[in-house]
Every structure is written in structure tokens, then in C-alpha cells.
Design a binder for these strands. Structure first.
Lengths: 195, 195
DNA sequence: GTCTATAAGGCGATAGAC
DNA sequence: GTCTATCGCCTTATAGAC
């Protein structure tokens, strides 16, 4: 590897991953063909195999790209001053994506659900996305002094995942809006003590 | 139609629907082939087309079969004496399926989520399953004297759908158990008044 | 390194024998 | 009515030209 240029090969590889992430999110993990993805990324169809040995390897790259997004989001939230502010920041991040979520569900939740049914080991790699967020939320709630932080973290995540399933299936964006608002009020009530 | 026999043709059709329902639940809506389904139902592969014109028509029959299940469950719960007892009966029904849900998610929720991404009109038909339950829950909560019954019904359903996504994705049945328990306590606290 | 042409296999669907 | 044989298409993946 020389020190010169921005690696045009990387450009195409990244475009393939971005197009794949978007198409798999909108139309499901298995439905989009490599031709669909390559066309969207402006890459010749057969040439996908120069960058990825199999289709699953491209799916894996999409999972890893989502993992990067999650890490970046949580890192930005970590700069906030209090655990409550960090949790609320997470809620606002979801709120900012309400429309997409109401249309196609949670990018992470639907990915995990679908891979869970067409298992090839990819499902476990995808599950890491959810547990990363769960662990982070648990950590914030524990900092609020709650001993039942794990269950509360799961409760918080379940609310969002469930709202995403309902809002997208029933085509009703207001479900996301109202459930996130309820979540923010719930975060306000969180304080030391159990149940 | 004569009055004589249990209709052997019906037997095969029903077996195809049952096998399809199970396989689509376990492995996703698109993944199982007609050969897989026919084999599981002990019906010759090509013969599926005597009963269903297209694969989608079989999927539609699966949705309708789920709708029957839902109607029967809600009808049996309607025999209970109070709205609170009916809601708790629903929670117990979910608890009884905890293991399946922790393995493959909610049969209705995952069906709706997947069809939402491979749209052919089937998604709207499937969404009826969710809204039927939502409407019923809303009705029960309203009978408890709550004016915010719709939002509370969505909250209840979101909890279960979210728990199903998390439990199946993270392969942790305890998530379903604890969230259903929390739901039952929450039902106990429901009474007249808002928020 | 990049891309085209094509192979190999599996799928939904059909035609028609029984 | 029931089933078999098979078609034609689409998809992933490869071989090899440029």
C-alpha cells in the first residue's frame, strides 16, 4: 500500500456497503439481489465479487457498518454531562429517525429479527448491535443508582423496538412519536430505588 | 358439496397451510420453498398449485389462519368476568408461548415486519392481525375507565413485541418472562385517571 | 485491477398424463 | 381430482478478457 491516494477501490467498496445497508433496510436482508445493490452503487454487477467473496460477506460488512454507527452515536452521547442527559439524547436520536422507523422499522431490530430466521452465524454478529446498546443503557441507569438497571434497560429497548414494529406494520408514525415521548417522561421519573 | 365425508382435499389443503404457517414462522416468509412446505405437509411438490394459484396465495391463507387463531383466543378471553381478568388472560397466553417466542419471535409481529419490507398488499392484510389485538386491548382498558386507552393499548403491545424482538435476537428467554411479569404488574396498577 | 460474459443451480409455475 | 415431468427465469458465483 502506497501513501498517495484515497484508494478508488475503497470508494467502490464503501458505495456497495452503503447501498446494501440502505436496500437491506428497506426491502429486507434476502430480497435485494446483488444486481440491485450493484446498480444502486454504480458498480458493474459481477464486479461485486472483486470486493466480497459471497453475498453473506457483504451482509457482514453491512452489520459492521451499523456497528460503527452505533459506536459513534454512543460515543457522542458519552460527552453529555449526566446519565439522564445521555439517555435522553438516545431518545432524541430515535426521535430524529421517526419517519424512517415508521416506514421500515428499526434498522437494527429488523436486521436482527430477519437474520434470526435465516441463520448462518450472521445473526449472532447482528445481535451484538442490540446488546451493545443494551449494555450502554444499563450502564447509564446504574449510574442513576438503580440496582435493577438491567431489567430497566431491557424495558427501555423493548419499548422502542416494539413501537418500531407497530408503527411500521400499522403505517402509523404517531405511534413512534407518542411512545418516544412516553419514554422521555419515564426517563425523568427514573431515580434511586427499586421497581 | 355433499354431506358425506371429511373432504380429503380439505385435509391436504389444511396440512399445507399448517406446514406453511410453521415454516414461515421458523424460517421467515420468503425463505422456505414450496418444495420444503409440500414435503413437510406430505404433499407432492407440484401439487401445491392445485390448492393455491401462487405462493403468495398460500401466504395469504397462512395470514387468514393466524386471524382465526387470534379471533378464537380473544373470544375465549371475552368469557372472563372483568376487563382486568381478560387482559391478564392475554398476558398468560403470551407467557404460555414464551419458548417459541424467545426462539423465533412473535408469530404475528415477525410476519408483519417481514411482509412490510416485501410489499405486495399482503402486509396490510397481516397488519389487521395486530390492529385486531390492539383494538381489543384498547376496549378492555377503556372499560377500566381510562380515557387514554388507545395509547396504553399500544404501550402494552409494544412491550410484548419489543420483548419478543429482544428475546429472540439475544437468545434470552428470560427477557420474555420478566417483561410479561412486569406487564402483569402494570395491568394491576391500571385504574381510572390519566397518565 | 476492473469488468463482461456466462455457467450452474434452484425456484415458482405449467402442461398434461393418469 | 391427483400427481409427474419439465419449462423458463432469476440469482449467485466464476472464468477469463481487457
Amino acid at each position: 500500500m502506497t501513501n498517495s491516494e484515497p484508494a478508488p477501490a475503497e470508494g467502490k467498496r464503501d458505495r456497495l456497503i452503503r447501498s446494501a445497508a440502505e436496500l437491506l433496510y428497506r426491502r429486507g436482508v434476502d430480497s435485494p439481489t446483488l444486481a440491485d445493490i450493484a446498480h444502486d452503487a454504480d458498480v458493474p454487477t459481477g464486479n461485486v465479487y472483486y470486493y466480497f467473496k459471497t453475498r453473506d460477506e457483504l451482509v457482514e460488512a453491512v452489520i459492521d457498518a451499523r456497528a460503527d454507527e452505533v459506536r459513534q452515536l454512543l460515543a457522542s452521547l458519552d460527552r453529555r454531562s449526566s446519565p439522564r442527559a445521555r439517555l435522553k439524547g438516545l431518545a432524541r436520536a430515535w426521535a430524529a429517525n421517526e419517519d424512517d422507523i415508521a416506514t421500515s422499522g428499526c434498522p437494527i431490530g429488523t436486521l436482527c429479527s430477519e437474520l434470526n430466521k435465516r441463520d448462518r452465524g450472521l445473526d449472532q454478529r447482528a445481535a451484538t448491535l442490540l446488546s451493545t446498546v443494551a449494555d450502554w443503557v444499563e450502564d447509564q441507569i446504574r449510574q442513576l443508582g438503580r440496582s435493577d438497571a438491567r431489567e430497566l434497560a431491557i424495558t427501555l429497548l423493548a419499548t422502542v423496538q416494539g413501537a418500531a414494529v407497530l408503527a411500521s406494520s400499522l403505517s402509523d408514525p404517531k405511534i413512534m412519536t407518542s411512545q418516544i415521548r412516553r419514554l422521555e417522561r419515564w426517563i425523568d421519573t427514573l431515580s434511586a430505588g427499586d421497581t
